[in-house]
């Protein structure tokens, strides 16, 4: 960096949100308090539905970060869900409390993701997508061959049998909720930071971003690792919630479909979109579950309708119509004092 230009400090006032941050903070705290106390407020059936909901929110948020913000359309994130589940199982088999193992399992996923990026980031577009799927399937095949982790039949997560069903249900719920909270707050803070602006610029014009000094590939690598960690959290909490860990359950391609569906319906490239998408997905799933195959047909039709008429997703439509942002990340210059 040169020191030729002497920059006059302007006492510039730059605002980060369109309305009071206190209002946002208050809203977040109220929502957080409600969900933390939910097991004592809501019926047990609702509590386990919410657990699954939060797992989906984590996966959708991570997929949106990857595809919606960093332009990496992965259909292999179920690989990291599976690895997160199995890392938890492994640590639990080694004697660690499964709940304590969750963050460690997520970190293991992040570490595994680093070398993979050197392979994947050489590829673009559709080739990248296919390669992510190959990576996910290879990970599953690798796990299948490890007898210690139960091979193809799977294994019970140890360390949970001593808990009563009610306590286990509560603990699982709290794990999924805190997992979702950490992932959401982390994603929001990341997107509010320099990285958020960097990702938005890369999404708009990659070449211009590079010539303005942006390290595009390094940024993609970082986001891929973050998404692997996030999906690892989802896999880890999924494993303790089941708690029978089996390759066919943890490495489901359906996870990739659900992440894609929820992000797209809700609005790609917005923080709010995947959350809204997950709400829609769960509402539909709960109300259509007795319709058999019809519910998949309705999901598919909805995705097609949104893709054609509302490509920016539901939250995109709301934002364009009402100019609202619940979680603002932009910058607004307020009149500078000369």
């Amino acid at each position: 960096m040169s020191e030729i230009l002497s920059v006059k400090p302007t006492a510039l006032r730059v605002e980060r949100s369109t309305f009071s941050p206190l209002f946002t903070l208050g809203g977040v705290i109220a929502v957080a308090a409600f969900f933390t106390l939910a097991p004592w407020i809501l019926a047990a059936s609702w509590v386990s539905i919410l657990s699954n909901f939060f797992i989906l929110v984590i996966m959708a948020t991570m997929w949106n970060l990857l595809a919606g913000y960093a332009g990496m359309v992965s259909i292999g994130q179920q690989g990291f869900v599976g690895l997160g589940a199995y890392a938890t199982l492994y640590l639990a088999l080694k004697g660690m409390n499964p709940f304590v193992a969750i963050p460690f399992a997520a970190l293991i996923c992040g570490v595994i993701a680093i070398p993979i990026t050197f392979l994947l980031l050489r590829l673009r577009g559709g080739y990248f997508s296919v390669a992510t799927w190959v990576v996910a399937d290879s990970a599953m095949l690798l796990i299948l061959s490890v007898a210690y982790l139960g091979g193809g039949t799977g294994k019970y997560m140890p360390g949970l049998l001593s808990l009563s069903p009610t306590t286990l249900n509560h603990d699982v719920y709290l794990a999924t909720w805190f997992g979702a909270l950490v992932v959401l707050v982390g994603t929001y803070l990341l997107l509010r930071s320099r990285v958020g602006l960097l990702l938005s610029s890369m999404r708009d014009n990659e070449i211009a971003a590079r010539s303005a000094g942006a390290k595009v590939t390094t940024t993609r690598r970082m986001i891929y690792v973050v998404a692997a960690i996030g999906c690892g959290v989802a896999g880890a909490v999924l494993a303790v919630s089941q708690p029978f860990v089996q390759p066919g359950n943890e490495f489901q391609l359906q996870f990739a479909a659900e992440m894609l569906f929820t992000s797209m319906i809700g609005g790609l490239g917005t923080i709010e979109g995947p959350i809204l998408g997950s709400i829609i997905f769960f509402t539909l799933q709960q109300s259509l579950q007795n319709w058999g195959a019809w519910y998949l047909i309705i999901f598919g039709s909805l995705a097609v309708v949104v893709a054609i008429w509302q490509p920016r997703g539901l939250w995109g439509a709301i934002r364009d119509r009402f100019h609202v942002e619940l979680l603002p990340v932009g910058y607004r210059v307020k009149e500078p004092r000369a």
């Binding site: 303005a212 932009g330 910058y331």
Partner: peptide
């Protein structure tokens, strides 16, 4: 080659944060 979805200020800010490695205010 502007970043079309960013504001004018955000366009320059990206350059300041990445190209000039400037931080915060």
């Amino acid at each position: 080659q502007p970043f079309e979805h960013l504001t004018v200020f955000e366009n320059a800010l990206l350059a300041a944060q990445q190209g000039a490695r400037a931080r915060g205010t």
